[in-house]
């Protein structure tokens, strides 16, 4: 079974890093993963999109996804083209209050105030990891420990000081969505 995720937001929210972290975590678990990134020259505020595909066999999915099972929507700006490709019924993690849950009527929506959660664990820069932690709590695509290890592996030496805060953000994101009905284990594997 292949699972596709589209991540959409604006430059500066950690879109690319969270997508890369998930793809690397799956790869380190011995699974097949593909990551396609799409962003402009802007460091902050411009469109930033990524897609991740994970599977247990060589992947059939295209680098430009024809459709996707799930989404992380970090910002409503620029999100329309990505959201138009979602298959109904799959999980979507929304960054509240920036994203209106009504914008995804056909999806199984989970909202998390990523900025507030990140602040609460003194990791204000890590909202991307909050969203990723929440996403993985819902989908169980990878072991949470694999996410932490992948995050640490991806940090360059001059950013190592953020590892602990990032790990707190991943855990806090997962805890924020520890709600009844959030277990999609059956459909995620």
């Amino acid at each position: 079974m292949e699972r596709e995720l589209v991540v959409t937001g604006v430059g500066g929210q950690g879109i690319q890093l969270l997508a890369k972290t998930l793809a690397l975590a799956a790869t380190r678990e011995g699974r097949h993963a593909m990551l396609s990134a799409d962003y402009g020259g802007e460091m902050r505020g411009g469109p930033s999109k990524a897609s991740v595909v994970i599977g247990d066999r060589p992947l059939r999915a295209l680098p430009v996804l024809a459709s996707a099972w799930s989404a992380i929507v970090a910002h409503h700006r620029f999100s329309e083209p990505a959201l138009a490709r979602l298959r109904p019924g799959g999980p979507a993690i929304l960054n509240l209050p920036l994203v209106d849950p009504a914008s995804l009527p056909a999806m199984t929506v989970y909202g998390v105030d990523a900025a507030a959660v990140a602040k609460s664990v003194e990791a204000p820069q890590a909202i991307g990891f909050v969203l990723l932690g929440a996403y993985n709590a819902v989908t169980r695509l990878v072991d949470p420990a694999s996410l932490v290890a992948a995050m640490q592996e991806l940090l360059p030496p001059y950013r190592r000081q953020h590892a602990a805060a990032n790990a707190r953000a991943l855990a806090a994101g997962a805890a924020a969505l520890d709600v009844p009905g959030a277990d999609l284990t059956e459909v995620s594997r």
Binding site: K20, H32, A33, M34, L35
Partner: peptide
């Protein structure tokens, strides 16, 4: 560009 920039296992 797809071959150059896509990351895959």
């Amino acid at each position: 560009p797809l071959l150059a920039q896509t990351r895959i296992g």
